[in-house]
Design a protein around this nucleic acid. Structure first.
Lengths: 201, 201
DNA sequence: GCGCAAATAACCGAAACGGTCAATGCTTAT
DNA sequence: ATAAGCATTGACCGTTTCGGTTATTTGCGC
């Protein structure tokens, strides 16, 4: 594996992305090293040169993704933002920026959770991370801004579902910036309809 | 193929579901007849007895899904319902009931669209169907009920995204009834916050 | 027990699998 | 220019699995 880490960063990225995409799409068993090699534009033998065997490559990708996902969120920025909808927006931007940089990590992690041999660490870790971010976004002190304070939690759950829908769209090739622009408009609209007038500037 | 149609409906269903799930998960190339046979609890040879070859089976499933999806929506009921949010609810119930009955059709159709040899008929047909339902749900005459009539279209787009998010959750094993209950609550909440008071009973 | 169709175990050649290795380039130091 | 050194790969290994066929077994009405 030192062989692989000695490569240029761009080449590492190409290979990682090819492997992540293949494993995500086909799962561990059905993704062949040859598929990955072709997708990466290198020879099959090179991959064995770099990683020794299929399992080691898979484990490496998993560790890489776990590390990358921890970096994805800037939690301190979230803590400093005072408005609920602004925090939702910030967290979404962080998520999408990360998705732009590493387009296949999310679907790879999702596919690991679906493996018949579930190292469910992945699902658990990934879910725990999401829950943690969620807990940073919704606070009780946000409730009072709502015309009907009891709506706040349901609005939040709705926004989580909305985010899932957006992720699907992005995976299907919808453009990032257009999607984010629409999402920004949705947040503004929700704010104007759900907040008391005194909290709208 | 007459051999297959002579089977009992339950057995047909078992085999179809197994095949749909395998093709949806792995795609045409990587889904093997053996996978399907094991999933269906019958022998590989039987599948060839019924369908002759892999391609014929795939084509049969595609035709079957297309036919099934046309039946899924009761458009006349939609046309008779006068309130926007009620129509959204009705269309969602139809979609979810269909998903309960035929759990793998949606993902199979989605996977056909992702085939490297895209008979893009599937994507086009499926999308056209969705667009048509959408056109039945939102009418201009709904706008006036909104506190801000210009919000109506964006609310609708938001609800479409929300539906996508819900589909993801359902595919991941979240229970149907709980999800639908939450969605009903969301719709009520939106209605109460977006409609003018005079339109709330 | 017999006849017959439905189901399958056993099998086919071909292809693809994970993995190895000797031969090729491609640098770089002399 | 050349030889050493190393990253890269085409060709190959034994094994498994592929789509598809065939010969045998099974279950069932009579």
């Amino acid at each position: 594996m030192e062989k692989f880490l000695a490569l240029s960063n761009e080449k590492q990225d190409t290979i990682r992305n090819a492997a992540l995409a293949c494993f995500a799409k086909h799962g561990y068993e059905k993704a062949s090293i040859n598929d990955i090699a072709v997708a990466a534009g290198i020879s099959k033998a090179s991959i064995f040169q770099y990683f020794g065997n299929k399992q080691t490559l898979y484990q490496y990708l998993f560790d890489y993704c776990a590390a990358q996902m921890k970096q994805a969120y800037n939690t301190s920025a979230l803590e400093e933002t005072t408005d609920f909808f602004d925090r939702v927006w910030e967290a979404s931007v962080m998520k999408v920026e990360n998705l732009k940089k590493h387009p296949h990590i999310a679907s790879f992690i999702a596919s690991v959770a679906a493996e018949p041999t579930p190292e469910l660490k992945s699902a658990i870790f990934s879910e725990a991370n999401e829950k943690y971010i969620a807990s940073l976004v919704l606070h009780e002190r946000d409730y009072k801004k709502f015309r009907h304070p009891e709506d706040a939690e349901l609005v939040f759950q709705m926004l989580m579902l909305l985010a899932k829908g957006m992720s699907v769209q992005l995976e299907n090739g919808v453009d990032y910036d257009g999607m984010m622009k629409e999402f920004r408009e949705i947040l503004n609209m929700l704010k104007h309809n759900f907040y008391k007038e005194e909290y709208l500037l």
